[in-house]
Design a protein around this nucleic acid. Structure first.
Lengths: 235, 235
DNA sequence: CGATATGTTGAACGTGCTCAAGTTTAGTGG
DNA sequence: CCACTAAACTTGAGCACGTTCAACATATCG
């Protein structure tokens, strides 16, 4: 099952790449009013959707692929604040200027909503307003969770937490292939580590039979209990 | 000027400890409807306001003092997700259960709003709804900012960022006394460092004439430009 | 198939942590 | 009000985790 991208329900990818709902987007089913007013835009791998500091003109909903929200510093450091998967909204949290840069991890399709329209719709339709509010809450919870991870967990704990988060969001079980779309550098920048440390941790976990890496950017959780045991007090 | 607690407008504390608005609470002036339905509660230093995992029965607004929102782990680690100052709302971000523990840093007064009432009021009154939404956005922005700090800044950069944040929220200038209310351990748990590292960094900055510590839990910024220069590329 | 991205592994180093002893401050009771 | 006590803060020395730099291996794409 794919962690993101075109969400396929079967293990073997028999369905065409379309806009099937992911586990997550189903939780917050978008009201039909919202569906009507957007237009579809595509971005190639590593393309910028919007830059930090730009004036906000639109918000987006991810249709397929993975978007990374990040901040870059002059001296080349990058911190990824989060990934947005199909069904997720981007840009609703800010007013005035975008406070993060949004980039396509791999090829991405999004729906673009003009902010003026969205704000008006949000005023008029309670269902749209509630939908946006629910997403805002979810984003805040995710940010707080992420923050705690960065503040007081070891490298191994972070990688374990990341993998479990991946599994939960993709709704997979032990043995299922997860197409995470992310390279080592993206994972590292999300976890506040270097790509070497991430690589070493993956190798270590593979050696212990906890995970497997069948392909690049893919991962299989082989032993969920052992992975969960890594979450706390493992150095 | 006090960073929090009873916010005094003059440098010399001639005004009585009362509920004067801070720079921050004035930004989001609460509508009168909200003021009417709460009741005032006090908590002593280190008392718990609510625990992570408890069912949500109420939300709170800080009147005086500082509240820390934190998560504790079995093995004794603590990460502070944020501090809430007079005017700030606590608990609006969650549904179902509290996801953080809220504790009084020093003596604290809050207004307690029954959640059922608040939700109803939020439905009926657009001004209350907008007020809550604005706070939610602000909390998300703060969490993202915090997250980036923890992910890719050195100890010195974190302390500098913390002090500048303090100064901005208290609305003080160079030379003003900031009553931060926080001990070294609280600062450390907020910054994802140890109290020793925080102490060393304060000592270092004092030696360089950038800050001064006239009293415990107080700080004075002596050289704002130098402090700002610390924000990036200082190891 | 060759070229380039991406990932792996190794060795040395450094920042911040741990453990420990000493110092200062604030709070309490005589 | 001062002395005493406990808590908070400072400072030092050694250590460990994760980083840095570098070489090599392995996918992926033209």
């Amino acid at each position: 099952m794919s962690f993101s991208g075109q969400a396929l329900r079967s293990i073997r990818p028999v369905l065409p790449p379309s806009m099937l709902p992911t586990a997550r987007s189903m939780e917050f089913d978008a009201p039909p009013e919202l569906e009507a007013v957007g237009n579809v835009v595509s971005f190639a791998r590593n393309e910028t959707i919007f830059d930090e500091g730009e004036e906000i003109t639109a918000s987006y909903k991810v249709v397929s692929g993975v978007v990374r929200l990040c901040r870059l510093t002059e001296d080349g450091r990058r911190q990824i604040a989060g990934f947005r998967l199909p069904g997720d909204l981007i840009g609703m949290e800010w007013t005035g200027e975008y406070e993060m840069t949004a980039e396509a991890v791999r090829d991405v399709t999004v729906v673009r909503y003009a902010r003026t329209r969205l704000d008006r719709l949000s005023e008029e339709r309670p269902s749209v307003r509630d939908h946006v509010l629910a997403h805002l809450r979810q984003d805040l919870r995710a940010a707080q969770e992420h923050l705690i991870m960065l503040g007081c967990q070891s490298a191994t704990e972070r990688v374990a937490a990341f993998l479990l988060q991946l599994a939960r969001r993709a709704g997979v079980r032990e043995g299922d292939d997860i197409d995470m779309q992310l390279g080592r550098q993206d994972i590292a920048d999300y976890l506040g580590l270097t790509l070497e440390t991430v690589s070493r941790t993956f190798s270590e976990m593979t050696a212990r039979g906890i995970i497997a890496s069948p392909k690049r950017r893919h991962v299989v959780i082989k032993n969920m209990p052992k992975l969960k045991a890594y979450m706390r007090s493992t150095n």
